[in-house]
């Protein structure tokens, strides 16, 4: 095999390989994963995060605007401190509320943001004060059965 034909084949191989990697990155996965440079972080505290996992989507009006960066347990307040990494393109008012929601009945959990009406916008390291914990199905059923429904939706 002459050297140039061989080079040509290897070139095709590399191009095909890169194309496959791009296909995986763009079509199969969501390369749109928020990267550190173009994002800001805010913290939200929840009494109960249910089955929320790091990297879970953060959505507003159904659109993915960021991801859960990390989840910590605060040993003083006994709350879960969830760090959200949000794309810089999306700005939210300071009084935005965060709720842990479930897609479908048993689907994965995500954080839903609902914009408030404040003039000031959330900045890096800010905290979201209005939060709503995950709906834990067992608790809900328990409440229903024991007629304690008046204690209502978990706060």
């Amino acid at each position: 095999m002459s050297k140039t034909v061989l080079d040509l084949w290897v070139g095709l191989f590399v191009i095909a390989g890169i194309a496959a990697l791009l296909f995986l990155a763009l079509k199969v996965g969501s390369m749109t994963a928020v990267n550190v440079g173009n994002s800001y972080e805010v913290v939200a505290r929840f009494d109960n995060i249910g089955g929320l996992k790091p990297r879970a989507p953060v959505k507003s009006a159904g659109v993915v605007v960021g991801r859960v960066a990390s989840i910590q347990f605060d040993n003083e307040t006994y709350e879960a401190a969830v760090t959200l990494r949000i794309d810089k393109r999306y700005q939210f008012p300071k009084d935005t509320s965060a709720a842990i929601m479930t897609s479908g009945l048993l689907g994965e959990q995500y954080i839903g943001l609902e914009a408030g009406g404040d003039d000031k916008m959330l900045k890096d390291r800010d905290r979201i004060f209005l939060t709503q914990s995950a709906v834990v199905l067992e608790n809900l059923i328990g409440h229903l059965i024991y007629g304690k429904a008046q204690e209502g939706a978990p706060q």
């Binding site: 191989f13 590399v14 390989g17 890169i18 194309a19 496959a20 990697l21 995986l24 199969v28």
Partner: peptide, 15 residues
């Protein structure tokens, strides 16, 4: 160098 390309091609082809 070849291995990750081959693996990516395998996955892409599989999908």
């Amino acid at each position: 160098i070849s291995m990750p390309f081959l693996a990516a091609l395998f996955s892409a082809m599989g999908i």
